[in-house]
Nucleic acid binder design. Structure first.
Lengths: 159, 159
DNA sequence: TGCAAATCATCTGCTGTCAAACAGTCTGCG
DNA sequence: CGCAGACTGTTTGACAGCAGATGATTTGCA
């Protein structure tokens, strides 16, 4: 029961008040905590979050150019290079020049990649359950819907 | 009407589906977009987000050590150093050694800092309204409550 | 055809953040 | 007192993310 409560027990904590006033800060801090958990999970599993997403998308929609992967997964182009490098080196992905447009690659998932994806995919539900266990199913649905609206709105103005 | 719709108009976009399946990814991407907007707003205003938060907390709870500021604002200690440096150099904050414990500082907001805070604070409601305009007031309330639960839960396990 | 503009992947440099190490200071116990 | 251990602020090194430039290739148009 001796949890590490440093400033929390010193009367009133300031952070909850801040989170209530500043929705943007609350969102960022919660996201940071979740991202931390995801990275930790991914590190323990051995497959990076970005790599997992790339394999998942390739498996779902077929061969893609790195550009398409970048745009749909919201991962920067220059970061996608490294992700594909790693996946290719591990044999989970093939990079072939698209014969129709030889500027672009046709990134294709291999059988090895599909097996690796299945392994990683199997652990995702437990990870999500663990990370969002504080929320009821109804709240998770609300959160999902709200984020979808935010993301859809944010997709038009910034670019 | 020639908006930049690159892959979005190419049949079906993959991102919405991903966001629906992976609540963690949706949260991170939405947070990144909001953080981007906040940084942009802060840059235009001339006061960094972290600096703003520090001034706000100092004004609300009185002089603090950098450690307390770090913990309550969820900003890393090593980042807090730079924030306080900048604020001190701008004259918005004074750093005096705490005579009771000379390891720590007693960071105090100055009158200049209070005036600067008031300026920045006045622009926050419009920024929030603009950033979360896609959400109804009810949705904003839901989001706030959900994030509060997530943050409260996440505050116990990671450390 | 030939050439300018656009596009794809890549590389480089910069910024912001985090982890770990470090120096100065305090506390507790012999 | 004297010293080991813990705490505060700072510095350093590593790394992700992003903007911009580059080389290879395609496309559009004269």
């Amino acid at each position: 029961m001796a949890t590490t409560t440093r400033t929390t027990d010193r009367g009133t904590a300031y952070f909850p008040q801040l989170a209530a006033e500043r929705l943007d800060i609350a969102l960022c801090r919660a996201s940071a905590a979740v991202a931390r958990a995801a990275d930790l999970h991914a590190a323990g599993e051995g497959l990076g979050v970005g790599q997992h997403l790339v394999l998942q998308m390739l498996d779902a929609v077929g061969p893609c150019s790195q550009q398409t992967l970048s745009e749909e997964l919201r991962i920067d182009r220059s970061v996608m290079v490294g992700i594909c490098d790693d996946l290719e080196q591990a044999g989970h992905v093939r990079r072939e020049r698209n014969p129709r447009d030889r500027r672009s690659y046709a990134v294709t998932i291999t059988d090895s990649g599909r097996r690796r994806l299945a392994e990683a995919q199997a652990l995702i539900p437990a990870f999500l359950e663990d990370t969002f266990q504080a929320l009821t199913p109804a709240e998770r649905g609300q959160l999902s819907a709200i984020l979808a609206k935010l993301l859809q709105a944010g997709a038009s103005s910034p670019r």
